[in-house]
Design a protein around this nucleic acid. Structure first.
Length: 453
RNA sequence: GUCCCCAUCGUCUAGAGGCCUAGGACAAGAGCUUUUCAAGCUCUCGACAGGGGUUCAAAUCCCCUUGGGGACGCCA
């Protein structure tokens, strides 16, 4: 690689702070950075912004890395921790101090309500504060175009806090410069930070990267997506049984579209098509209905051999007792088109996994009140017990013959049977249920239910 | 309050001045299929926020209004 190519290499970064789980919005930012890098054959650097001593937690860091890996967003090199670079920030701040572009000040530390925290041991030194010069700052944003901000609306910026740690905007500039970041892709909520950072670039004489501010993801009420809108962290979606491919596909389409009406796309195709120029500048509402649809499409596209192990991870040991692999696969196959998430399987197909059924009392009563229901069901039970082969074909033939004999519709036997065998009024075809449950379990469930009718 | 961003169906979006009586998808509704529910197939409903310009021509360009969102920390 020659020098020119090296200078032109695209380097982007994702810079989470380990103060919480990976939020869906952050994940989208990470995804766009990743797509940008992969599309242009660049590098994605992971930087951990752990300069908030009180809120940063190691468990959060691990969780964030796990979520990124689960989504398939791989990064280049080792993650860089800001907490390991404190000297560098301090030295850099000193430089501005020496140039007369900054000053030191001793202030109190206040909490969120504005009260002074009196005996804070954190005040060990003076804060270093940047003197904001008067000027118009221009951002040539990759998604918004030209944005102008008058610096008179910005107050002097703390670079080094009294606890010796750098502030976000300051550390960001030092790091992005050191790491050779060429493009900063981040959420719209950072637009107001960019002019502050641009001022630092200028003070140091550093070349600023390109900026692209991507729109935010909103909840149903159009405010920033938060806990009250439902699941906000990637781990929650993983735990609910969404497929990472579906989630990636879905969030890639929040604020971006390839422009040819394509929606279900492999990640390879998304990388191929992704262009920051096609990113919209309008915020997007997160629509769980559409995510559910997309996830179900991904589930339907999987073959049973791939799906079964994925579903197994959502089942407990006791769910699998007495179930052989072949049977489980058949059940999975039956439910592939009926579940929207992997987690729904246990709920939907529960009656295949455990024998104890809870019958809804009202439904049971309704059933018992139908004319001649008990004697018909007893006859049907005896017919079933006389079958040698307990297959879809055999059970259907037996049921239809009996219905004819009794001069009732097939449904008169089918619906009560479904209720007896599954405890539900809706579900897969009843003859599938017969075969998959097997003769023994079917008869047992009939006997148990008939006692109650 | 100040600054900034944004504005096409309920939602995600297509739309780069004539291809737009605005296209697709989700959701909703109807029908077909059927033992129920799904799935599948077919159809229906449904939007350029409002007002001024510019232009032969505007969803697309400009301005204003309105409406949403975000930021204003020794948080990141």
């Amino acid at each position: 690689m020659n020098l020119l190519q090296e200078m032109q290499e695209i380097r982007v970064r994702f810079a989470p702070s380990p103060t919480g789980y990976l939020h869906i919005g952050s994940a989208r930012t990470a995804l766009f950075n990743w797509l940008y890098a992969r599309h242009l054959n660049g590098k994605l650097i992971l930087r951990i912004e752990d300069t908030d001593l009180e809120r940063s937690k190691k468990e959060f860091l691990e969780e964030i890395l796990d979520s990124l890996k689960w989504l398939g967003l791989n990064w280049d090199g080792e993650p860089i921790l800001q907490s390991a670079r404190l000297d560098i920030y301090r030295k850099s701040a000193k430089q501005l101090l020496d140039k007369g572009l900054a000053y030191e000040a001793q202030g109190e530390i206040r909490d969120k309500e504005g009260n002074i925290i009196k005996n804070s041991k954190r005040i060990t030194q003076k804060a270093i504060i940047f003197k904001v010069p008067q000027k118009i700052i221009t951002i040539n944003d990759l998604v918004h175009g030209k944005i102008e901000i008058d610096s008179s609306t910005i107050k002097d910026q703390v670079m080094i806090k009294s606890d010796g740690f750098p502030t976000y905007n300051f550390a960001c500039v030092i790091d992005d410069t050191d790491m050779g970041i060429t493009h900063v892709i981040r959420g719209d909520d950072h637009i107001s930070n960019t002019p502050k950072q641009l001022l630092f670039y200028e003070a140091f004489g550093f070349k600023a990267p390109e900026f692209g501010h991507v729109p935010l993801i909103l909840g149903k009420d159009r405010s920033r997506m938060s806990k009250r809108h439902g699941a906000t962290s990637i781990r929650e979606y993983k735990q609910a049984g969404y497929l990472p491919e579906a989630l990636v596909n879905f969030i890639s389409l929040l604020g971006w579209a390839p422009g040819n009406d394509r929606e279900i796309m492999s990640v390879t195709d998304i990388i191929k098509e992704f262009d920051i120029k096609n990113v919209k500048s309008v915020n997007a509402v997160f629509d769980t209905d559409k995510l559910n649809w997309m996830n179900s499409e991904y589930i339907k596209a999987l073959d049973v051999n791939t799906l079964t192990p994925l579903i197994k991870e959502f089942l407990d040991k006791e769910d699998l007792e007495g179930l052989d692999e072949l049977n489980l696969k058949k059940i999975v196959k039956l439910f592939t088109i009926r579940i929207k998430t992997l987690g729904e399987f246990k709920q939907e197909a529960g009656y295949f996994l455990k024998d104890k059924l809870e019958y809804d009392a009202g439904q049971l009563l309704k059933l018992a009140q139908r004319p001649a229901i008990k004697e018909n069901l007893i006859k049907f039970r005896d017919t079933l017990s006389g079958l040698n082969e307990f297959t879809i074909l055999n059970t259907e033939e037996a049921l239809r013959n009996l219905a004819k004999e009794l001069n009732i519709s097939a449904g008169e036997l089918i619906h009560p049977s479904r209720f007896i065998l599954t405890g539900k009024t809706v579900g897969p075809g009843i003859f599938d249920v017969f075969e998959l449950l097997g003769k023994d379990r079917v008869l047992k469930r009939f006997d148990r239910a008939l006692e109650k009718i």
